[in-house]
Design a binder for these strands. Sequence first.
DNA 1: GAGTTCTTATAACGTCAAGGAATGGACCTG
DNA 2: CAGGTCCATTCCTTGACGTTATAAGAACTC
Lengths: 299, 299
Amino acid sequence: MDLRLLRAFLAVADHRHYGAAAHQLSLTQPALTKQIQTLERQLGGHLFTRGRHGAALTDLGQSLLTDARDLVVRSDLLASRAVRFAQGTVGRLSVGFGLSSIELAPWSVAEFRRRWPDVSVTLDDMSSRAQIERIAAADLDVGFVRLPAGAGLQQYTLRQDRLAVAAPSAPAGELGAWLREHDLVRLHRDKGPGLAGHIDRFCAAQAATPGTVQVAHDLQTVLALVAAGVGPALVPASATRIAPSTVSVTPIDDPGASWDVGVVWNPEHCPPVVSNFLNVVVPGSVRAGQPSAVGNVRS
Amino acid sequence: MDLRLLRAFLAVADHRHYGAAAHQLSLTQPALTKQIQTLERQLGGHLFTRGRHGAALTDLGQSLLTDARDLVVRSDLLASRAVRFAQGTVGRLSVGFGLSSIELAPWSVAEFRRRWPDVSVTLDDMSSRAQIERIAAADLDVGFVRLPAGAGLQQYTLRQDRLAVAAPSAPAGELGAWLREHDLVRLHRDKGPGLAGHIDRFCAAQAATPGTVQVAHDLQTVLALVAAGVGPALVPASATRIAPSTVSVTPIDDPGASWDVGVVWNPEHCPPVVSNFLNVVVPGSVRAGQPSAVGNVRS
DNA sequence: GAGTTCTTATAACGTCAAGGAATGGACCTG
DNA sequence: CAGGTCCATTCCTTGACGTTATAAGAACTC
């Protein structure tokens, strides 16, 4: 069953005239005649009764008509959907975000949704480390994470973040000394292994090893505990926004306290939707439209 | 969108191996490679990631898979249905019958239904004249009628029928004299114009012009009126079976009282279902299976 | 790490069928 | 009967498809 022959059949059925049908198909009449003859040979029966008034459908032709139309329409739909999918106009995209990107991800996703409304976007909240693992496994498309991402992945730095002291009042005196005198409210390691590691390294660099007053499972709670006077905490400066007004957040002005935040993706798994998303986040970063092009489209 | 390419795509998707897929398609591997490349070029994206372990579907391939399967299945269905329709294995058949063929038609149709269960048969009850008109207009496929059918139609004689006298008791004496002494219960002309004409001609040949006692609209009623003593009637001898036991039916032994009954069809409109039906009615009358064949079926 | 063995991709070539131009033939119309 | 309108046929060119042979790449083996 060749769709080309079915299209020929439908054209003739519509026009009831070989010449007109051939013109519509950009063919000459003899070519069309041969196509219809081929189809009739394959089916084993005549599709049209030819006569002075042109071509009229036989019973067989009539019985074929609706289904043939249906099939041709479906094939066109299939093709157009596939092309749009290949262009990233439709499809699915999963985006990861976490502590490091509370402000970055939502905006990017909203903008992407506006530009590509037919792509369904999934937002997943998880630690930078988990994002990176899943991106490497091609299980997640892109992520907003604490950099660097690691080998094999591509990244783009969007901005910097740094540690800040969250306490009822700003710490007085030298920071290292202050740290040596306080135990900290901490975020559970699993919820932010990158952050935890960073805090450890920074404290070590300050020659301090503060203990743990209490562990919380999200940043909101950490800040609430700080506000309740349980103890101070080291938090990302970007968390200022979600801090209660009774908590003083003091960014730490030290190179060792800062890190890069950016978007990460897997160059081995970069379908058009991903390229399009990256172009929203970092305009001009990736050529858009046909990143996985395979040559010229003919038909 | 070429179904051949979709089949290639599905084969590779199933086997995840070009060689195996090519074998299934009775192709060599390079040919299959080219088909997939063609499809990928048309869609504008890769369908498979090729590697040591064969070919794995990309997102694009995955998104195409179910719809492609559906389309291919539908095309196969369409083709097989069309072929069976062309062979007369499925389809529609309208059969006409009337007074002349009360016993012939039902048996033929029943037998045909047994042999070709997927053809839906419509039985239409109408006069021979109406059947012939509709057959000539290709509005009815075949009919069981009083012969001859007329120009342009083909017919086959199945048996003879003749007039019979239906009366409370068999007519005594010479028939012509008897006819001249009785008025008749008659069937409405429109219900059996052929029969009515035949009766008129026969009576005229017997030098009788019997009047009309009463007109009924079906044969059953005519016989009931006879049984009720309203008057005698001339009816087809084949009507014996439906006559009440109190009515004596005496076939008339005269060449002028008999006629042929047979099956009629339109040679200009003789799709396979019709040929198949005729083969049931008159085994061997028409070559079965591919009466409207158009050459050899290749694919 | 060189060789082997899996893959898929490419090159070269022959074949066959699709399409175009010209022509034929059947049928109606004036 | 000439002219017009259809579809069918013929002949020819071109290109697409498939085959054979070979390359190229990646993952094992020893």
